[in-house]
Design a protein around this nucleic acid. Structure first.
Lengths: 225, 225
DNA sequence: AACTTGGGAATTGTTGAACACTTGACTCTC
DNA sequence: GAGAGTCAAGTGTTCAACAATTCCCAAGTT
């Protein structure tokens, strides 16, 4: 039986996926206004279907709806970043502390993510690097073995990613955070979870301040104009 | 200027709210199948609007969509309950540990919730009691001062509430958990957060086992039939 | 010149009807 | 009874229309 990949995904969900990818890859930068009719025409679907898709994405936090004013790609504020990083601490630290020897499946996936990260940095592919960076952290959360938490976390990091792909490369070094990831991975494989947790906390603080600095500059530039 | 409460909520959102209330109050028990046309007619709105509402609720986890098979009120499994309680431990314990003296606003709200809980139990109003019980715990989460976390937690407890309002009263004492809440509140007001955390952990285990027992019985009865 | 005041034009919110497709039950045959 | 064909019911999607709201711009007022 060759029923493998029959298209069982509704059109609305497919549209949502397409838009999600475009937003997360930076094709649709934060603030971009989206028109229902235009999108419907360009995607070859009806307006109703587009509305369903935007409804999905606005509940995910990627789009922002304003009644009668249309939807726009959400824009992270500094408060949003602080909130998200607070949650990252709250959720990632206990995750590594809960890591067990039985979690070798997660560890192998983390190795793959790590290698992808390093390759992307070598190839100067910023979008890909961010994707692998955040995927690595999503895998940390998997130590909790909790599906609801994973999907919540995915949503959180998606919001963050939206802000990160936009940072100007000239103001930050994409590869600067690779060594920290490598050490975290090593400490996990050797079972030194406590040491790993402290390193991770440091890494998160570092990552947050990098993002905050860049966003500060952007905001200052935007205000000056 | 008397603009106070102009209706700025879209019809779809209103429909979603109505359905949400009916589900959480147990009017629509888990497993109930819902038909788009029937709902549209009974609510006096169009089918498209109903579809938007069901989309919202399915993303919240209250409804479950099956392609071409309609939507039904979600049904909690024992695994779901375990997952949710794992998250309650992960999130509520650090919340009370983070409680500060400045959080008196939250404490006064907790007092109100506590009183409502006690009244509901006296009046043998199970639905109201569960609502106040879970609202009390939502307030604990507020110590984190994190809006994203609060909305996630609200969603989690909604799922739980759906299962709790259904428990057969003959198999459980609605008021059994009141004293624990009262003590938690007292320990918070006196700033004994560490002691409060251990009591809370015990309370959560207690609450989980109560729910699990009742659900086990329901499942056994359903299987026997 | 700054401020209001009306129009429209454009866009979203909502409706109703239509049609394609899937599902589930029913019947009919062997 | 088991399997194949049939059909009604319901969902997925589209389309066209209209109502409601916002935005913009020109005209008038002070």
């Amino acid at each position: 039986m060759e029923l493998a990949e029959i298209n069982r995904i509704s059109v609305a969900d497919q549209v949502a996926s397409i838009l999600r990818r475009r937003i997360l890859d930076g094709e649709l930068p934060p603030g971009t206004a989206l028109q229902e009719l235009t999108m419907a025409a360009s995607l070859g679907v009806s307006r109703n279907t587009v509305r369903e898709a935007t409804r999905i994405l606005s509940l995910e936090g990627l789009l922002k709806r304003n009644a009668h004013r249309g939807v726009a790609v959400a824009q992270l504020s500094l408060e949003d970043v602080a909130e998200i990083y607070q949650l990252r601490h709250l959720l990632e630290i206990p995750a590594v502390l809960a890591a067990k020897m039985e979690d070798s499946d997660v560890l192998t996936e983390m190795r793959t993510a790590l290698e992808g990260y390093e390759e992307a940095v070598e190839g100067v592919d910023w979008v890909r690097a961010v994707r692998f960076d955040l995927h690595f952290h999503t895998l940390l959360i998997r130590f909790h073995r909790n599906r609801r938490l994973e999907s919540f976390y995915q949503k959180l990091l998606s919001e963050l990613r939206m802000g990160m792909v936009l940072v100007d490369l000239r103001h930050d070094d994409p590869g600067g955070l690779v060594p920290a990831h490598r050490r975290i991975y090593q400490l996990l494989t050797s079972g030194e979870t406590n040491q790993c947790a402290t390193l991770l906390a440091q890494h998160l603080r570092d990552s947050e301040s990098r993002l905050t600095v860049v966003m500060d500059q952007r905001i200052a530039r935007a205000a000056a104009k």
